[in-house]
């Protein structure tokens, strides 16, 4: 993520999953769209909903609720998909969609306002969390998209390693 060293605040888009508010760097957001029918991919974990056709490109859709082991919710007209750009280790840009409950707001958060997440031991995995920030007396969880969407099943496996 573009961690700006200056004190100017970066803009973050926040969204809800259950009652928790999460934030992602707004520069990573390509578009926000409604739910459309996905094509499921066989033998993949549940949180990978499938793929959609986004103007000619095939884009995978990831359900963040299921990714975080939250109770799942029916998909419908109100379901929101945030299409984001993800950088993988080899700096390849990929487009992915994440399913969230609702988009909330856009906040300015300065880099030094993002506090490291408290340590929960091994009970809660904080690997994908860049930190916690306080906005309007509320806590938002700043996500590390690259970590989140390159982890485990989503990691790029070289298909033709020689």
């Amino acid at each position: 993520m573009n961690s700006d060293t200056t004190q100017t605040a970066d803009k973050y888009l926040t969204f809800f999953l259950t009652k928790e508010e999460y934030a992602v760097d707004i520069l990573r957001v390509q578009e926000i769209k409604g739910w459309s029918q996905v094509t499921t991919i066989p033998n993949t974990p549940k949180y990978i909903c499938g793929v959609i056709n986004l103007r000619g490109t095939i884009v995978p859709i990831i359900d963040l609720r299921l990714r975080f082991n939250l109770p799942c919710q029916e998909y419908g007209a109100m379901t929101v998909v945030i299409v984001v750009k993800v950088l993988s280790q080899d700096a390849k840009e990929r487009i992915m969609g994440i399913v969230v409950d609702a988009v909330s707001d856009v906040y300015d958060v300065a880099e030094n306002e993002i506090k490291p997440p408290p340590n929960f031991g091994s009970v809660i995995n904080t690997e994908f969390v860049r930190g916690l920030a306080t906005v309007d007396e509320k806590m938002v969880i700043v996500l590390d998209l690259d970590r989140l969407l390159n982890s485990a099943e989503l990691a790029i496996v070289e298909s033709l390693s020689q």
Partner: peptide, 11 residues
């Protein structure tokens, strides 16, 4: 259309 551009190879 490639699946691998944005996702990965699926067996």
């Amino acid at each position: 259309k490639s699946l691998e551009n944005n996702y990965k190879k699926i067996p």
